[in-house]
């Protein structure tokens, strides 16, 4: 599904504060994989996700999606293949647009945005049906501005929005880091459900060791811009959160 071959990324190359964020990293992601990624601050987890999404372009190496080389493709073109959930709930939604308008844009992720009015009655009904499944009462106020909602609500909506249009790959960078424990649990359950039902290929960065061990079929540990460990499904089953905490303390 996704093949990452020998990618490297250095920030501020040649200056005094040069930082090697990723070095010669290779990773093969199979269709339907749900990979959780853990590692110290600054180990390159976000950089890896940004290179996959195209927000950053690699200095060297290749990224292949289903056989097509996307190494140099900018992010807004790669979003045809990829949905993203950001750490900051503000980054994945537009505050001054209504819930409906946010969903409308999400429903056109892989298509062009024309001059026709797509935010119709039937579209509204479709969105309200989806909102109802959240049990947050949002189906009663689809016209509410996104900016009036809490971070947890926005993160849950971003997840629903990610599957409004044809979706294959979902990237989640600390999706619950800005949320309280209760909202975090709701959002994680929703993420798991969406990934399972949509049969998505997902990569999730997290600092919550419980989530890293409970979710997904593969676990990757990163250190200093490289993958230190890559646990397969059977190996991952034997890992519990405590093992991960121990790894961090070595």
């Amino acid at each position: 599904m996704i093949e990452i071959k020998n990618i490297s990324k250095t920030f501020n190359r040649g200056s005094a504060d040069e930082i090697v964020a990723l070095k010669n990293l290779s990773l093969k992601i199979n269709e339907g994989d749900f990979i959780t990624v853990v590692g110290f601050n600054g180990s390159g987890k976000s950089t890896l996700l940004n290179l996959i999404s195209g927000s950053l372009i690699a200095d060297s190496g290749e990224i292949i999606f289903n056989g097509s080389n996307v190494t140099k493709l900018p992010d807004y073109k790669r979003s045809k293949y990829i949905s993203r959930i950001f750490q900051n709930p503000l980054a994945g939604t537009a505050s001054e647009l209504s819930i409906l308008e946010n969903f409308r844009l999400a429903s056109l992720r892989t298509r062009s945005k024309s001059l026709s009015i797509g935010n119709t009655k039937s579209f509204r009904k479709n969105v309200c049906d989806k909102l109802k499944t959240l049990n947050m009462g949002l189906e009663n106020k689809p016209e509410a501005l996104m900016g009036s909602l809490s971070g947890g609500q926005r993160q849950a909506l971003t997840l629903l929005m990610s599957v409004m249009d044809e979706s294959k790959i979902l990237l989640l960078d600390e999706p619950t880091a800005a949320l309280d424990p209760k909202s975090a649990a709701i959002v994680m359950e929703l993420a798991e459900k969406i990934i399972r039902e949509g049969n998505l290929t997902a990569i999730m960065v997290t600092h919550r060791m419980k989530d890293a061990s409970n979710y997904g079929n593969r676990l990757i540990m990163m250190r200093e811009g490289s993958i230190e460990k890559d646990y397969s499904e059977s190996e991952k089953k034997t890992i519990i959160a405590d093992d991960l905490v121990r790894w961090f303390n070595i």
């Binding site: 927000s55 994945g92 537009a94 308008e101 409308r104 892989t110 945005k113 024309s114 797509g118 935010n119």
Partner: peptide, 25 residues
């Protein structure tokens, strides 16, 4: 209110959002 108009308004709001929705800001 058209689809393109929504994309335009979102661009002034959150560039990261519109890029992840396949829009070139």
């Amino acid at each position: 209110k058209s689809d393109m108009g929504i994309a335009l308004r979102a661009t002034g709001n959150s560039e990261s959002m519109v890029k992840s929705m396949g829009v070139n800001p």
